[in-house]
Design a protein around this nucleic acid. Structure first.
Length: 386
RNA sequence: GGUGGGGUGGCCGAGUGGCUAAUGGCAGCAGACUGUAAAUCUGCCGGGCUCUGCCCUACGUAGGUUCGAAUCCUACCCCCACCA
């Protein structure tokens, strides 16, 4: 359980297989985000058919609604959602960043003023770990302190060091839960959930290195995440951080780049040794009418699609592209029917999942570099061309 | 036929002497979105140009008052309501 095997490499890029209690995840892989225990707008069957092997859910949001006790009493996230494949829960650490203004950080934890009803919720590393234990995903994430991409050295150091101190507390609590509270719903009681740490340090390379050292010192771990990227810093800066991390991350462990990304980010991350990604962009952009194509992104509402009988993406095998003409998809957005939101979100999710599948295949046959270069070139060169 | 109300940019609808090419909303067009406070948000939206500005044309039509009118006056046309 929680075994990760690397089958092939091309440079830093790896193709691997991650075993989790609810199934196997072949990497590199994109993980669709289901914050509220639903990949927003999509039926679980949509997500399965799109080829998702693992999806996320969110600690903070599920704590607010419906409450982790409700999910636990219904048999955990898998039964609650009917999603039988692996799941991962984010710890609420990202909400420390995204809900800035509604929270106050102290050494003990973070006090949130609920955006739902104004109630005050105090999330500590221990609480975030307990909530995730009740939610019952295959992978729980450490409660971290995310700072903005523009954070100064001192602010980034503060967040990084706090993340390490909190990591020790998450680990201790997680071990205690695993030892003393066997659950009825997990497949394999003692090893039913693993906890992954998150490397922080902003855009400062020495802080990132220090974060890795500190994190590994608190191990062992079955996986490791890189957080605090794609939060406002420039793209080359993100690449610089990934390049600096790649040689010092343990090669045998799956590496998860949190919150990334757009299609090019996947390939650029894979080339730098990343195995797992998650991002809301596929579903959110889809709902907002931006579809990803091999030739770049396109606005589905665009008058250019009016009356077109062509598929949205002729190269795509998703249900949307194999069923509907793009002129109809545009119509759905124009008349604001919810089916449009679902269909474009579905396409984008499939697009990203397939990108991961293709990258894997090209790593396995050794052609990743060339293929990736051509893919990126085509995507950026002909942006939005139909 | 009489009385009253009203005719504003593609549509709805503010504005009742200068700050008005004219508030808003809709429609239209374009853009943004990266561990989800997002089916959201932003910009453009009479025409033209040598485009940080300038020039046309515009508030039913035609005149008039005024330094200046979508706003005041007169006539006419049309719409609505009520009364005959």
């Amino acid at each position: 359980m929680f075994d990760f095997r690397i089958e092939a490499r091309v440079g830093a890029a790896r193709a691997g297989t991650l075993s989790l209690p609810h199934g196997v995840v072949t990497t590199p892989a994109f993980m669709p985000v289901g914050t509220h225990a639903v990949v927003r707008g999509l039926h679980p069957e949509d997500v399965r058919r799109a080829g998702a092997q693992i999806i996320l859910a969110n600690t903070y949001h599920l704590h607010l609604r419906p409450g982790e006790d409700v999910v636990r009493d219904m048999g955990g996230l898998h039964r609650f959602t009917t999603w039988e494949r692996p799941m991962l829960t984010d710890s609420g650490g990202f909400q420390v960043f995204s809900l800035e203004g509604l929270r106050r950080i102290s050494e003990d934890g973070v006090e949130f003023t609920s955006h739902v009803d104004g109630s005050v919720r105090f999330l500590t590393p221990e609480r975030a770990t307990e909530i995730q234990w009740d939610l019952g995903a295959d992978v729980a994430m450490a409660f971290d302190h995310v700072v903005p991409g523009q954070a100064t050295y001192d602010v980034a150091r503060d967040g990084m060091e706090r993340t390490l101190r909190w990591l020790a507390r998450c680990r201790r609590r997680h071990a205690a839960l695993a030892a003393t509270s066997p659950r009825s719903f997990p497949l394999s009681p003692a090893l039913s959930q693993t906890l992954w740490p998150i490397v922080q340090g902003g855009t400062h390379l020495d802080l990132r290195r220090e974060s890795v050292e500190g994190t590994l010192g608190l191990g062992p771990w079955t996986g490791i995440a890189i957080g605090g990227l794609s939060v406002g810093e420039a793209k080359p800066v993100m690449h610089e951080v990934l390049d600096a991390l790649e040689p010092i991350l343990p090669p045998a462990m799956p590496r998860y780049l949190m919150g990334v990304g757009f299609p090019p980010d996947l390939l650029q991350g894979i080339a730098r040794g990343i195995d797992l990604f998650d991002c809301v962009a596929a579903t959110r952009n889809g709902r907002h009418g931006t579809a990803w194509l091999p030739t770049g992104r396109v606005n589905v509402r665009s008058a250019a699609l009016k009356g077109s009988r062509d598929p949205l993406d002729p190269e795509c095998d998703c249900d949307t592209c194999t069923t509907f003409p793009r002129g109809y998809l545009r119509h759905l957005f124009v008349v604001e029917d919810i089916l449009g939101l679902r269909l474009i979100a579905l396409h984008n999710v499939r697009f990203l999942l397939r990108l991961g599948e293709q990258a894997r295949a090209h790593i396995l046959d050794g052609s990743f570099d060339r293929w990736s270069r051509d893919w990126l070139d085509r995507y950026s060169r002909s942006r939005g061309v139909l």
